[in-house]
Computed example of a mutant assay.
Amino acid sequence: MFSHNGIIIVFTLLIALMASIMPMPLSVDAFRPDWVLIVLVYWCLALPNKINIITAWFMGFILDVLLGSVLGVHAAAMALSVYIVVVNFQKIRNFSVWQQALIIGVLAALYHLLVFWLQRFLTDAVFLTSYLYPVITSVILWPWVFLLLRRVRRHFKIK
């Protein structure tokens, strides 16, 4: 059974999943941030011993099911992106929030390029520059998501 801390973390990840599939107007849907990646990166930085690559793979697999994509595409891309964070979490923690936002941008770009590459390998996906629009919104939203999740972590004393 999950502890009190585990329930809060799972709840934030479920909210990120819901935000990832929530209907949006077509004009702004291309700019949908990578909610699951952002939340996973936060928890990997805050609690690297609890939230890790296995969690990222599992969340990516759920995202594959929810988005109807080829199984394993988002899971592999999410796991590789989070692996980079887990290996370098001590360095990334010491950066300012704005520097971390730039790292989030690089990770989000890597994530989207990996998803594209895997989909291109498995299907006949075509690359469009609009495919990288979520990178911009993920960078912009990182400081606010970081501050919100840090407040949640401190309020519920998650360790």
Rank of each mutant, 00 (worst) to 15 (best):
W43N: 09
Y42P: 03
F156R: 05
F31P: 04
L114A: 13
Y131N: 13
S20G: 01
V36K: 07
W144R: 10
L118I: 01
T123Y: 15
L45I: 05
T129K: 12
V115D: 02
L71Y: 10
A77D: 01
I158R: 00
A30K: 13
S27D: 10
W142C: 02
T137V: 03
A77C: 02
F116H: 09
R93N: 01
L148C: 10
L149Q: 08
G105S: 11
K157G: 01
V126R: 08
N52H: 11
M78D: 02
L147C: 13
R153L: 07
L40P: 06
F146C: 11
F31Y: 11
V86R: 08
A19D: 00
V135M: 14
V115E: 05
L63T: 11
L14Q: 09
L66S: 11
P23Q: 09
R154Q: 14
A77W: 01
Q90M: 10
L107T: 02
L102R: 04
P25G: 01
V145M: 10
Q100G: 06
A79G: 05
N49T: 15
S20F: 00
P48E: 13
F127P: 05
R151M: 02
L37V: 07
Q99L: 06
F146P: 06
A76D: 01
V41I: 15
F127T: 08
D64V: 02
V82L: 07
I158V: 05
P48A: 13
K91V: 06
F31M: 07
L40C: 10
G68F: 06
F121S: 13
T129Q: 12
L128Q: 10
M18G: 09
M59Y: 15
L128I: 09
F31C: 02
V152E: 04
V82I: 15
T55N: 06
L63Q: 12
A56T: 08
G72Q: 04
A76F: 05
T137L: 02
L67T: 15
V73C: 02
V115T: 12
W57P: 02
L14H: 04
Y131C: 08
I15V: 15
F58C: 15
L148G: 06
L71V: 12
